[in-house]
């Protein structure tokens, strides 16, 4: 569905994991772009109705792209630059604390 227009020799591949699945992105990609490009359909389910959501605005305005990154909840995937080894998980209902 998405393809890279060109390779940029200056940008190293960056591998991270989404729900345990390895995804290869490029240095400088945001998590949201990388996930959408990898064909991930939805990043979370809404807390109100459980509806699936995917990135909408890509610029930090809509907050629809909230994911868990390395254990931290409610991170905007479009405002997070990919880092090697990141562990990213879907959020279902903005779940949080372990008591």
């Amino acid at each position: 569905m998405f393809r890279r227009l060109e390779e940029d020799a200056g940008r190293v591949p960056v591998r991270f994991r989404f729900e345990g699945r390895e995804i290869e992105a490029r240095e400088g990609d945001t998590l949201a772009a990388a996930l959408v490009a990898a064909g991930v359909l939805s990043l979370r389910d809404t807390p109100v109705s459980g509806a699936p959501r995917a990135p909408y605005c890509m610029m930090g305005v809509c907050f629809d792209c909230l994911v868990e990154v390395d254990g931290r909840k409610n991170c905007q995937a479009c405002m997070t630059v990919v880092e090697p080894g990141m562990e990213v998980r879907r959020q279902t209902g903005e779940d949080g604390a372990e008591a």
């Binding site: 807390p47 409610n74 209902g93 903005e94 779940d95 949080g96 604390a97 372990e98 008591a99």
Partner: peptide, 9 residues
């Protein structure tokens, strides 16, 4: 202050 949703605790 109000926070984002948290799992019930």
């Amino acid at each position: 202050i109000v926070t984002a949703r948290v799992a019930p605790f």
